[in-house]
Design a protein around this nucleic acid. Structure first.
Lengths: 150, 150
DNA sequence: TATTGTTATACTCTATAACTATA
DNA sequence: TATAGTTATAGAGTATAACAATA
């Protein structure tokens, strides 16, 4: 015996670590929203950009950069993609600033984005107790703060 | 008046969304562990690999791939890096399989990795109530499951 | 000078296709 | 054939440096 005693199921020494569980859950959740947005030909970065501009018509790339904590340099290709797709309009503002607005078709697509996000959120929290639902974002905010930023 | 009425602080329409908060918190937490591991010249992917091999001496790359949910193809460069650094030993096993072990210096470094992780975990949960501490991983597991995988 | 926007670049993580070697 | 490992490659996300344009 014991000729083929393979490990195959490993002991997972990372199980239960906040760092690990957060990363794993975040990865799963991002995979799920990616699937949800696939039919709209949008990635999460696109969708979150549209959400922010939809809620703040006329905001600038700097505004977005600060709000979503992405480097200004990384906002550029996202804006370009959405502009080329006819979803975004760039209007000259003060100084070098450019004010961003959703086009008509951008606004229409945003509605679908909101539906996709609503579906995702409903699915995520479908079997959470009221207490859990109420506390989960509080805990996440605490953890975020403890991780030193925000 | 109203000449320079800039937006500057945006309304954040993503605030409170589980998808968004999870991603943001995960990013912050990964940044914090990256900082913690920086002095050891390891990234989280290296550290988690060492943790798994330390807890499962003789495991294979396929085992690791399944445990950490990384593509087998992406395990290769990680293993190579740690092997080149003298932290890992590869011993021929059955068939094509290769059994992985930490070297002496690998085991020594793993101790420091564990300390770094322990510091991180303590900092993350320092101001969580007992109830929160007890429930947070449960909620994360639920969310992970609801996201459809795991 | 400080702010805004941009280009180029590079590194990490992740994913797929195609291949070799072994049972 | 199924499993283990590998190579090459490509796409996203994120980071810095250097620069141009405007107040």
């Amino acid at each position: 015996m014991k000729t083929t005693e393979k490990v195959s199921v490993l002991r997972d020494p990372l199980e239960g670590l906040l760092t690990y569980e957060l990363r794993k859950t975040s990865a799963a959740v991002m995979g799920a929203i990616a699937f949800e947005l696939e039919s709209l030909d949008l990635r999460w970065s696109d969708a979150s950009l549209m959400m922010v501009i939809g809620a703040n018509p006329g905001c600038t790339q700097s505004d977005i950069s600060r709000a979503l904590r992405i480097q200004p340099t990384n906002v550029v290709p996202l804006i370009n993609k959405l502009t080329r797709a006819g979803l975004l309009e760039r209007v000259a503002g003060e100084g070098r600033a450019v004010s961003l607005f959703l086009t008509k078709s951008g606004a229409a697509l945003l509605k679908q984005v909101k539906s996709a996000i609503a579906r995702q959120e409903a699915r995520l929290s479908r079997n959470l107790s009221q207490a859990q639902k109420a506390q989960v974002t509080d805990v996440l905010h605490l953890l975020c703060k403890n991780a030193c930023c925000d």
